[in-house]
Amino acid sequence: MPHKIPESVLVVIHTADLEVLLIERADRPGFWQSVTGSLDRIDEPLLETAARELFEETGIHADGETVRLHDWHLSNVYEIYQTWRHRYAPGVTHNTEHVFSVCVPRDIPITLAPREHLQYAWLPLLEAADRCFSSSNAEAILHLPRHFPCNQP
Rank of each mutant, 00 (worst) to 15 (best):
P2M: 06
H3I: 07
H3G: 06
H3F: 14
P6G: 02
S8Y: 01
V9S: 03
H14G: 08
H14R: 12
L18E: 15
L22Y: 13
E24Y: 08
R25K: 12
A26L: 07
A26V: 09
D27H: 12
P29T: 13
G30P: 01
G30D: 08
F31M: 03
W32N: 08
Q33A: 09
V35S: 07
V35I: 10
V35Y: 03
T36Q: 11
G37E: 00
S38L: 05
I42T: 15
I42W: 15
D43Q: 00
E44G: 00
P45G: 08
P45H: 09
E48Q: 14
E48W: 04
T49Q: 06
A50Y: 04
L54W: 06
F55L: 08
F55G: 01
F55S: 13
E56G: 05
E57W: 00
T58P: 07
T58R: 00
G59K: 01
I60K: 05
H61A: 10
A62S: 13
G64V: 09
T66N: 15
R68D: 09
R68H: 04
H70P: 02
H70A: 02
W72I: 00
H73P: 01
L74S: 00
L74E: 10
L74C: 07
N76I: 10
V77F: 04
Q82S: 13
H86K: 10
R87K: 10
R87G: 07
P90R: 02
P90W: 02
P90S: 10
T93L: 05
N95A: 08
T96R: 14
E97S: 15
H98W: 12
H98S: 14
F100P: 01
F100E: 04
C103A: 12
V104L: 06
P105A: 12
P105V: 08
I108M: 07
I110Q: 03
L118H: 12
Q119F: 04
Q119D: 13
L125I: 11
L126I: 12
D130M: 03
D130G: 11
R131L: 14
R131M: 07
C132L: 01
C132E: 04
S134V: 03
S135H: 10
A138S: 14
A138L: 04
E139T: 14
A140T: 14
I141E: 08
L142C: 08
R146E: 15
F148G: 14
P149R: 05
C150E: 10
N151A: 09
N151M: 01
P153Y: 09
P153T: 13
